[in-house]
């Protein structure tokens, strides 16, 4: 973990206390058997193909042009989007704009270790992945030579962080009235052997990254999809999977991404409706105030005329 030399850091060889708990020493098979119980349900009671319920909200950060908050039980993600600003260190003229994406974990976000303030390689990789996923949606040609900032802050991480970050970024961009081609949604899947875990938690993801001794499939796949245009914006796989498994999972992921879309749609439409009602209310209030002022003016005018007479 890289150190931030501007802060006071703890002693370098300090180690998390969790390393000395019984949980840490569990073997692969023990962890695997814990994930699914006898009825075929997962640790948190979900079925294998059930995604976690998602809470979606826009206008979360008042200081940002557009923002969103997505919560899927243990995974909580905030995204803010800002207006186009000049590209720093730009040397040559370009006909398209840039997207600057930064994903950051809160230091207390992950359960296994404390995240450092200096971005490590995982955060940098997530930022690149986010940029790849959101890039095809934004109309970059409308802000040539400028960049739009997208900042994602993961408050708590319990699996599917990248998928949540991509969906949050898509919603925040729409909330910021950045011209986009389409709304992007994302979802992820963990595969252990022949079991497919949709919307995996951190434990399931962690186990899916470890390979068992035999040659079985294991891995995590994340997909980002443009819903109106029905195109895949980003597809990321890690682990070791054979081709039939990948093709099957591609279908499953497409359906999952499609299931997320109505929530985003409903949120956006809701905000437009609220905006319309707000505008109407403000204009009515404005008219009422103007009428009052006019009355006062007439009153004063008549009183002046009376006094001067």
């Amino acid at each position: 973990m890289p150190l931030d030399y501007k802060r006071f850091n703890g002693p370098e060889d300090s180690v998390s206390y969790k390393r000395f708990t019984a949980d840490y020493l569990k073997s692969y098979d023990e962890l695997h058997s814990e994930l699914i119980d006898e009825t075929g349900h997962r640790k948190d009671g979900r079925a294998m193909d059930e995604a976690r319920p998602m809470y979606v909200r826009g206008n979360f950060v008042s200081q940002a042009k557009g923002s969103s908050y997505i919560e899927m039980r243990g995974t909580k993600v905030v995204c803010s989007v800002f207006d186009p600003r000049e590209i720093v260190h730009q040397n040559e003229f370009s006909t398209v704009g840039l997207l600057f994406c930064e994903v950051k974990f809160a230091p207390f976000a992950c359960k296994r270790q404390r995240q450092s303030h200096v971005p490590d390689s995982e955060e940098k990789a997530l930022s690149v992945a986010l940029r790849k996923a959101v890039g095809p949606t934004v109309c970059c040609q409308l802000f040539a030579n400028f960049q739009i900032d997208i900042f994602v802050y993961i408050i708590e991480s319990d699996g599917s962080c990248l998928a949540a970050a991509i969906t949050a970024a898509g919603l925040a961009l729409a909330n910021a009235a950045v011209p986009m081609f389409d709304v992007v949604t994302a979802s992820s899947v963990a595969i252990i052997g022949d079991k497919i875990f949709i919307d995996p938690t951190e434990d399931e993801e962690h186990l899916a990254m470890i390979s068992p001794d035999t040659n079985t499939n294991h891995g995590v796949i994340t997909m980002a999809r443009l819903n109106g245009l029905m195109q895949i914006a980003d597809f990321r796989q890690i682990g070791s999977l054979d081709i039939e498994c990948i093709l099957k999972v591609t279908d499953i992921l497409e359906q999952e991404c499609q299931k997320v879309f109505p929530k985003i749609q409903k949120t956006l439409v809701g905000y437009v409706k609220n905006g319309i009602m707000e505008q109407k209310r403000l204009s009515e209030e404005g008219k009422a105030r103007e009428a009052k002022l006019k009355d006062k003016m007439l009153e004063w005018r008549s009183s002046i005329v009376n006094n001067s007479v």
């Binding site: 499939n217 914006a233 597809f235 990321r236 796989q237 070791s240 999977l241 054979d242 990948i246």
Partner: peptide, 9 residues
């Protein structure tokens, strides 16, 4: 059996 160990776009 050939397996995919990474896919990226």
């Amino acid at each position: 059996e050939a397996k995919c160990s990474v896919i990226s776009m």
